[in-house]
Design a protein around this nucleic acid. Structure first.
Lengths: 197, 197
DNA sequence: CCTACCGATCGGTAGG
DNA sequence: CCTACCGATCGGTAGG
C-alpha cells in the first residue's frame, strides 16, 4: 500500500479510538498506524474531530438501516424483536472497533454532530419500543410490561456484548443472537409463573 | 471548605474522569474542580495515575464485598441472584461517577493495578456463574442454560443501566431491581414454552 | 498552598 | 508527503 487515502486514516482512527480512546490518541499515533507522519494526515482530513465524526456516523447509519428494515417488516413482534437482536449483534461484532468508538466516544463529538448522532440512536431505540408495545397489545408479550424500561434493558444487554464476546470460543454470532433472544423471551426459569423467590 | 484533603481530590477525580474520561481530564481541570491550582494537588497525591487507581479500587472493593456477602448466603439460587442484581444496582447508582469511571477507564490503569482490578472483577463474575450453576442443578433455572454465557448477559444488562437510569423518573432503585430480576427470570413472554417465533 | 518553571507533547500550519 | 515549526497545554518539580 503506497498511496494512502482518507479511508486509511479513518480505519486507523476506528482502531485506535477504540483501543485508546479519542483523547488518548494523538495525530502522531494515527500517523504511525497508517504509515505517515502525523502532520501528513492533514492532506486527507481537516481535523482530528472530523475522524471521530466519520467513525461515529458510519455506525449510526448502520443502526438506522436496521431500524428502517424492521419498521418495514410486517411480522409478529417476536420475529421483529428477533431481527433487531440479530441485526444489532451483527453491527456490533462485524466491526467491533467501530462499535466501541460509537458507544464510548460519542460523548466527545463536537456539536452539532453529537446531537445528530444521539437523535439517530433515539429514533433507533424508538423502534425497539414500538415492537415491544405492539407485542404487548397482541398478547405476544406480557401485557403488564413497562415498554420503555424493557427497551432500555434489551439495548443494555446487547450493547454490553462487545466487551466479552469472542468468536474464537466457538459461538457463532447467529447462535449468540438465538441465545440472547431465548433469554429475553423465556428468561432463566424452568417453568412459568411466579418469580422463583 | 478551607483546607483540602486527598479525599477532596479523589472526589474531583471521580466526577471529572466519569464526565471527560481519564485522558480528557488534566490536573489543572481537577485543581479547578477542587479549588486549587493544578500543581498544588501534588501535596495530596503522587501522580494522576494514583487518582485513577483510587477511584477504580473503591469500586472494585464494593463489588468484592457484595460477592462475599452472596457467597455466604445459604439460600436458593433465585434469592441469591436477586440479591446480586439489587446489590449490583445499588453500587452502580449510589455513586454513578465511580461506576462510570470503573467501567470506562479501568483500561487506562497502570500495571499491576489494572491486572488486580480485572482479577477482582473476574472473581466477582465467578460468583454469578456459581449461583446460576447451582440453580440449574437444582432445577430452579433451566438446566440447559449456558451458565458462562448467561453470567455475561446478566452483567452486561446490569452494567448498562447507569447509561439511562434516572431516579427522578419515579422508579426507585429497588423497583428497578425487581423489574430486572423479573425480566431475567421470566422473560418477555406471556405464557411459557416455545420461543414465540 | 502558590508562583515560576521544566521538557515533552498536543493539534495544526507553512513551505516546498 | 516530509521537514520544520507554531502557540498551547500536558504531567510534574523546585523553592518558598
Amino acid at each position: 500500500m503506497v498511496r494512502k487515502s482518507r479511508t486509511d486514516v479513518v480505519a486507523a482512527a476506528r482502531t485506535l479510538f477504540a483501543k485508546q480512546g479519542f483523547h488518548g490518541t494523538s495525530m502522531r499515533d494515527l500517523g504511525r498506524e497508517v504509515g505517515l507522519k502525523g502532520s501528513s494526515l492533514y492532506n486527507h482530513v481537516g481535523s482530528k474531530d472530523e475522524l471521530l465524526v466519520d467513525v461515529v456516523r458510519e455506525a449510526a447509519l448502520s443502526f438506522q438501516a436496521l431500524a428502517d428494515e424492521v419498521v418495514a417488516m410486517s411480522a409478529p413482534a417476536p420475529q421483529r424483536l428477533s431481527r433487531l437482536v440479530h441485526g444489532h449483534l451483527e453491527i456490533l461484532i462485524r466491526d467491533r472497533d467501530q462499535a466501541k468508538t460509537f458507544l464510548n466516544e460519542i460523548r466527545f463529538l463536537p456539536e452539532p454532530e453529537r446531537d445528530e448522532a444521539v437523535t439517530i440512536f433515539d429514533r433507533y431505540q424508538e423502534v425497539f419500543r414500538e415492537v415491544l408495545e405492539s407485542g404487548c397489545e397482541r398478547r405476544e408479550f406480557r401485557p403488564d410490561l413497562d415498554v420503555s424500561l424493557a427497551a432500555n434493558l434489551v439495548l443494555s444487554l446487547l450493547n454490553g456484548t462487545h466487551r466479552w464476546y469472542s468468536p474464537e470460543r466457538g459461538l457463532s454470532i447467529g447462535s449468540l443472537g438465538d441465545e440472547i433472544y431465548q433469554l429475553l423471551y423465556s428468561g432463566l426459569s424452568l417453568s412459568p409463573g411466579g418469580d422463583g423467590l
